[in-house]
Write a protein that binds this DNA or RNA. Structure first.
Length: 400
DNA sequence: TCTGGGGTCCTAGGACCC
DNA sequence: TCTGGGGTCCTAGGACCC
């Protein structure tokens, strides 16, 4: 048996054509959690988002989208709000133009985190092999779980509803790629079960963007070659795709269009980085608003230090992120010889990176990232390095 | 009416080494 | 006095996702 390097196998059944993988996606998750708190809003267009709660006019009930002023975006919209064209990631000022009377609720992340843990625990009772894909979705390996696919999907949905009061949509297919697409097909509150034989009829008519990993840029580039549906993409010659999209990406596009995907579920992963960033209420000038920026940086350092402490990580590199008024974004990272986690050290590292940037334009965002993470418990300071003696010696020779 | 915050992965180019 | 070809590591930026 050949050993596949770098691939962590999850049981013998994790590869091959006979897998049964589910993708479970909560329906309009944040908005649905809010509706549990405000059942009287059910059936109305509701948007969750914004930076801080907008004060609604007294006696007028819930704040409306049209009352919002600022840089917030919609985090989630109920299906009623989506009918107006509002979708997550959309600027609220733009959303207000589409649905001025939609109700705007601020986000309550603690509540979403709680509901998230609850639905994942409920699923884990029925099927323990789960890959976490964020707050509102998971992949589930059902290969070893007895029962018919539809029956299992119904059981999962019922367990989620019991645990949270919320609905979800489920796709079940032989792999992650197809299940992700499938779970979208009958949203909300849907079940879609597909086999490889269903690919031509059910997958190929969909736009290329339905594939997880094909975003706006790739869609536009494909469109320029008259490739609009996944079927168009499947017809494209593999070598031609490699020629125009690169060896790796081109080959992947070809595989994806044919519904081929043998990625195993990743049951647990160490974080690669932890970051904090903030967009200002108004653009700030590096010199004129120096004090305000300094306080914002301090706050980011403190919050990031808290995150690192809570998760018990040290950072071997610290990066800053600046977004200018014209939305151009730059990053600078600083590698550290000794890993750190405290706010003061983070600030020192951030300031060192800041010195390498020409600060001549107004800023709209400042971010701080801890990378190259090591677990506090696993970090051993190296035995006192002899190189500390050698390096200064070099300079004393040059500058006696 | 300009575009949040938290992440991952990939690539290109330069430094450095052999 | 000019010239190789790889390999690896690092940094910055960008695409994409939830």
């Amino acid at each position: 048996v050949k050993d596949i390097e770098g691939v962590a196998e999850v049981g013998a059944s994790s590869h091959g054509a006979h897998r049964r993988i589910a993708h479970l996606d909560m329906d309009a998750f944040f908005a649905s959690v809010e509706l549990l708190e405000h059942p009287e809003l059910k059936g109305l267009p509701v948007v969750v988002g914004g930076r801080r709660p907008v004060a609604s006019e007294p006696g007028k009930g819930y704040p409306r989208l049209k009352d919002y002023v600022g840089r917030g975006v919609a985090t989630t919209a109920t299906y009623e709000a989506r009918a107006f064209g509002v979708h997550s990631g959309m600027g609220l000022m733009k959303a207000a133009a589409l649905a001025p009377d939609a109700i705007l609720l601020p986000a309550h992340f603690e509540a979403y985190g709680k509901a998230s843990r609850a639905f994942k625990a409920a699923v884990a009772e029925l099927a323990p092999v789960i890959e976490d894909r964020g707050i509102d979705e998971i992949y589930i390996d059902l290969t070893e779980v007895p029962g018919e696919a539809r029956e299992l999907a119904l059981k999962l949905k019922e367990a989620v509803r019991q645990a949270t009061g919320l609905t979800c949509s489920i796709g079940i297919t032989p792999n992650k790629l197809l299940s992700k697409i499938a779970s979208e097909l009958q949203k909300p509150n849907g079940i879609t079960i597909l086999g490889l034989e269903d690919i031509p009829a059910r997958i190929w008519p969909l736009p290329c963007g339905a594939i997880n990993g094909i975003g706006p840029k790739a869609t536009a580039k494909l469109e320029a070659f008259q490739i609009r549906t996944i079927g168009d993409l499947a017809k494209a010659n593999r070598d031609w795709l490699v020629e125009h999209f690169g060896r790796s990406h081109g080959a992947w596009l070809h595989e994806a269009a044919h519904g081929r995907d043998d990625r195993p579920l990743a049951m647990s992963r160490e974080p690669k980085s932890i970051s904090r960033e903030t967009t200002f209420e108004r653009d700030l000038h590096p010199r004129l608003d120096r004090e305000a920026l300094s306080l914002i940086l301090l706050d980011l350092c403190e919050r990031l230090a808290q995150d690192l402490a809570r998760k018990r990580y040290l950072a071997r590199c610290v990066g800053i992120k600046l977004r200018f008024e014209d939305f151009t974004t730059i990053t600078r990272v600083q590698s550290l010889s000794v890993p750190i986690a405290d706010a003061a050290s983070l600030r020192e590292a951030a300031r060192a990176s800041l010195k390498r940037v020409a600060l001549d334009r107004r800023l709209r965002l400042l971010g701080l990232r801890a990378g190259d993470l090591v677990k506090v418990d696993e970090y051993q300071p190296p035995p006192t390095a002899p190189s500390r003696v050698a390096e200064p010696g070099l300079f004393t020779d040059l500058n006696p």
